[in-house]
């Protein structure tokens, strides 16, 4: 898929901080953290050139556990914060990490517009179909008949949100699904996503063993996608709509956005020249 990895001078553990995660033992997010540090090591990215930005949630705690630059922001706003950073500092590698509540509920609007904006970001959503941090309420991806929360004792009755299909409709160029139970496969997807020169959405099935213990069954039900990666949005849409949302792999990959699409910069100017425009001309 990609050439032999460059000789890594830094090991995955060099990308980990000494801060101890607050996560429950067995939480899927541990494997995601490991996969991220492995991917960064394999890509041999200098630590100071990488930033991980997140919102709020168990999953969003991830930046402090890495030893790169990080920003643990506010609930739902990781994507705009990361977009501002990337727009201002395009040479940095910017990863965005969070949960399904953070990304698809409170941050849903930003998700759509980040896909459209197509900045070179890698957005990793650890989907456990529940709000872990606030102790187990339904999220947009929770199945309609899940009665595990006292807040929705009869289930939400609402159809689940299909993040990959929405990312496609909103214009994301790279859409993949991974599973925390397959850290090797996930590392591979992360490397491809980081290398993709546009917005890469990586939907990671990452069980919450505390509030959604039935997700342990994902070990059996999650499967590789049947076909190869497609660049055809119609075909991808069909698969994403019809599938069980448990298929892993690169689900869609559009040709990278054409080089620097920004129009030719206008003539440079200084602030003194700008100020001079306001001077009232001499009458004589």
């Amino acid at each position: 898929m990609h050439g032999p990895p460059p000789l890594p001078s830094l090991k995955p553990k060099d990308y980990k901080s000494d801060v101890k995660p607050v996560w429950c033992a067995g939480c899927g997010h541990f494997a995601v953290l490991s996969a991220i540090t492995k991917a960064l090591a394999q890509l041999a990215l200098p630590r100071e050139q990488v930033a991980v930005v997140s919102g709020i949630g168990c999953s969003s705690r991830l930046p402090a556990y890495t030893h790169v630059y990080g920003f643990h922001g506010i609930h739902g706003r990781a994507l705009p914060l990361a977009s501002g950073l990337k727009a201002a500092r395009p040479e940095l590698t910017v990863l965005v990490a969070g949960g399904d509540g953070d990304g698809f509920s409170i941050g849903g609007n930003h998700f759509i517009h980040a896909c459209r904006r197509n900045l070179d970001l890698t957005y990793i959503v650890m989907d456990n179909q529940v709000y872990g941090m606030t102790k187990g309420q339904a999220s947009p991806t929770t199945p309609p008949d899940w009665t595990g929360s006292r807040l929705t004792p009869h289930g939400t009755g609402l159809p689940g949100f299909n993040p990959a299909a929405i990312a496609l409709a909103a214009g994301a160029g790279f859409i993949a699904r991974g599973f925390s139970g397959d850290p090797g496969g996930l590392t591979e997807l992360l490397i491809q996503g980081i290398e993709y020169p546009g917005f890469a959405f990586i939907h990671v099935l990452s069980p919450c063993i505390t509030y959604h213990p039935e997700q342990r069954a994902w070990k059996q039900t999650v499967h590789e996608q049947s076909g190869a990666t497609t660049a055809d949005p119609l075909l991808a849409a069909q698969h994403l709509q019809q599938g069980d949302q448990l298929a892993t792999g690169v689900l869609f990959r559009a040709p990278p956005p054409a080089g620097s699409a920004t129009p030719a910069r206008r003539q440079p100017i200084t602030t003194d020249q700008l100020a001079a425009r306001f001077v009232v001309p001499d009458q004589n």
Binding site: A51, V53, F71, G73, I74, G76, R77, L79, P80, L81, A82, S83, G84, L85, K86, A87, A88, R89, L92, N109, H110, I112, H113, R265, R266, Q267, P268, I269, T270, T271, L274
Partner: peptide
């Protein structure tokens, strides 16, 4: 004018995004 000074203006999707975008840019030193 920002563009001519080598900077950038992004039209955000809402004010929640605007304020977080400028926090990100400033975190980046700009």
């Amino acid at each position: 004018n920002l563009e001519r000074l080598g900077g950038e203006l992004v039209q955000a999707e809402d004010e929640l995004a605007s304020v977080n975008m400028i926090i990100g840019a400033s975190f980046g030193g700009i």
